[in-house]
C-alpha cells in the first residue's frame, strides 16, 4: 500500500480541480480551469496505464474543446448595442469607428455588463430606420439613440430628462442595464415588437439563449 501512496495523492487532485471548475463563476476563468482539469486528468490516466485515453484527453478534451468553447463564450456572452453612426458608414469597412457618442454612458454600461461577465459590442447603423429594423429582426439586443434623433415622439417624451434613450429587447438584459446606468445619463425601456406580443417574446428561444446562463 505504501508503494502506491503517490497514486492516491495524485488521483485526489482530479476531484479537487473538478470542484474548482464547478465552483467558478467567471466563464473565462472556468475555461482556463478546464484546461487544468484536462492536464491533471491526462496525468491520472497515464498513471493508471491508459496511454491512449491520456493522449485523447490532452488533444481533444483540452486543446480542441477549450478553443471551441472560448470562441463560443466570446460570441454569445455579449450585448450588441446598435448606435447611430455620426457619418453614413461604409458596410465594407472591416472595423467601424466607434461613434463619438456619450462616453460616460458607454463606460457605465460596460461596467454594469462586466459584472455579469458580458461584453459590449457596438454596431453602428446609418439611420434611425435601419436601427429600428435591426432591433425588430433581432440582429441587435438594444439600441441607443440621442433623444433629439428619436424616431417616435413617444420615446422622446418619456425620455425628456435624459439625453439618451436605450431600448432593450430582452427583460433580463433590461434589468441588468437598469441597475447599472444612472437615470441622468439615459432612460431605459423595454422594446415591444409590433409583430409579436410580449408573451411570445419572452417565450421565444432567441430571447433566452444569450442570457439564460446568467440567471441567478
Amino acid at each position: 500500500m505504501s508503494e502506491d501512496f503517490y497514486i492516491v495523492v495524485i488521483a485526489v487532485l482530479l476531484p479537487l480541480t473538478a470542484g474548482m471548475l464547478v465552483a467558478q463563476r467567471n466563464p473565462y476563468h472556468a475555461l482556463v480551469i478546464r484546461g487544468i482539469v484536462g492536464a491533471v486528468a491526462a496525468l491520472v490516466y497515464a498513471l493508471f496505464g491508459a496511454a491512449d485515453v491520456a493522449l485523447t484527453e490532452a488533444l481533444v478534451g483540452t486543446m480542441l474543446s477549450i478553443t471551441l468553447y472560448a470562441i463560443a463564450v466570446r460570441s454569445s456572452m455579449s450585448l450588441r448595442l446598435g448606435l447611430l453612426a455620426a457619418a453614413p458608414c461604409d458596410p465594407d469597412e472591416p472595423t467601424p469607428e466607434e461613434p463619438p457618442l456619450a462616453q460616460p454612458l458607454l463606460k457605465a454600461l460596460r461596467r454594469a455588463l462586466s459584472r455579469h461577465y458580458l461584453r459590449l459590442e457596438i454596431v453602428p447603423y446609418a439611420s434611425p430606420e435601419a436601427l429600428q429594423f435591426a432591433l425588430e429582426k433581432k440582429e441587435i439586443h438594444a439600441t441607443c439613440i440621442a433623444v433629439t434623433e428619436a424616431l417616435t415622439p413617444a420615446t422622446a417624451q418619456s425620455a425628456a430628462s435624459a439625453p439618451y434613450h436605450l431600448s432593450v429587447r430582452l427583460p433580463r438584459l433590461l434589468e441588468i442595464v437598469q441597475n447599472g446606468v444612472p437615470p441622468t445619463l439615459a432612460s431605459v425601456s423595454l422594446y415591444r415588437s409590433r409583430q409579436m406580443t410580449t408573451a411570445n417574446l419572452s417565450d421565444s428561444p432567441d430571447a433566452r439563449h444569450n442570457i439564460w446562463e446568467n440567471q441567478p
Partner: peptide, 16 residues
Amino acid sequence: VGVLILSVGNASLMLL
C-alpha cells in the same frame, strides 16, 4: 504520450 502532451499542451495554451 508524456512527450506529446508536453509539446501539444503548450500549443493549446498559445491558442487560448
